[in-house]
């Protein structure tokens, strides 16, 4: 589609290059995503998942790897089926099988994968210092199933932080839906109403810059 160089590894044969997986982006840059990209991918992915809930009967599935998160040229982010989804189709899949997956379980898995993308390349004994709002978002996303609303006190009791931190926790103590995640991502911006355009632009730039880098590296080779 871009007319030059080989396609990004992993692209399906044929067709235009209109999407990249988060895994391809990480591999190409060989570094983690930045915080703004994490907010944007969360927002955009939850937006598409939310649309899918209302517009189709597509089964919910957990996010098992960054390869499933697809960033599109136009800034959309979607969740693809695993490359090999036989695992999820086994009768033994049970709780983790996508046919029984709840929205909070999808959010949990998305939070984990987003964190791993932020943590990409770091050693086991190293931890990235995240901004408190993003860390709290991911923390709550990844713990949604256990938290289940009533366990919120556990977080607050464990963190005897400043009052404004307590307020922040209260705001994000109840992530139960894609909409909740999107609201929190929007609240991260100075003007919440700009969230759709802003996060789409961030993801569009992520796609475009990754393709530029790929083209550049191809020419160098």
């Amino acid at each position: 589609a871009d007319g030059e160089g080989p396609r990004v590894p992993g692209e399906a044969a044929g067709g235009s290059q209109d999407e990249l997986s988060l895994e391809e982006i990480l591999l190409l840059y060989n570094q983690p995503i930045n915080e703004e990209q994490a907010w944007a991918v969360c927002y955009q992915c939850c937006g598409s998942l939310r649309s899918a809930v209302t517009s189709s009967s597509q089964p919910r599935r957990r996010v098992r790897s960054a390869a499933q998160i697809r960033v599109w040229r136009d800034g959309a982010v979607t969740l693809a089926a695993p490359a090999s989804d036989t695992e999820e189709r086994t009768p033994a899949a049970g709780k983790s099988g996508y046919s029984h997956c709840t929205e909070t379980e999808v959010i949990e898995s998305l939070g984990i994968i987003i964190y791993k993308a932020l943590d990409y390349g770091l050693k086991e004994n190293e931890e990235r210092e995240l901004s408190p709002p993003l860390e709290q978002l991911i923390d709550h996303m990844a713990n949604t199933v256990e938290a289940d609303g009533s366990n919120d006190e556990g977080y607050e009791a464990a963190d005897e932080g400043l009052e404004d931190e307590e307020d922040e926790k209260k705001k994000i103590s109840a992530i139960r839906s894609y909409r909740d995640v999107m609201k929190l991502c929007a609240a991260h911006l100075s003007t919440e109403s700009e969230a759709p355009n802003h996060y789409q632009a961030v993801c569009r730039a992520l796609f475009a810059e990754t393709m530029e880098l790929h083209t550049f590296l191809t020419k160098i080779k």
């Binding site: 570094q31 964190y115 770091l122 190293e126 931890e127 990235r128 210092e129 860390e135 990844a142």
Partner: peptide, 24 residues
């Protein structure tokens, strides 16, 4: 362009990385 700037600290048992690791 596209650069990630971030600080790295030692991993803590009570940190988010440890909690995420326990889930995976």
């Amino acid at each position: 362009k596209g650069k990630s700037l971030y600080k790295i600290k030692p991993r803590h048992d009570s940190g988010i990385k440890a909690k995420i690791s326990m889930k995976t």
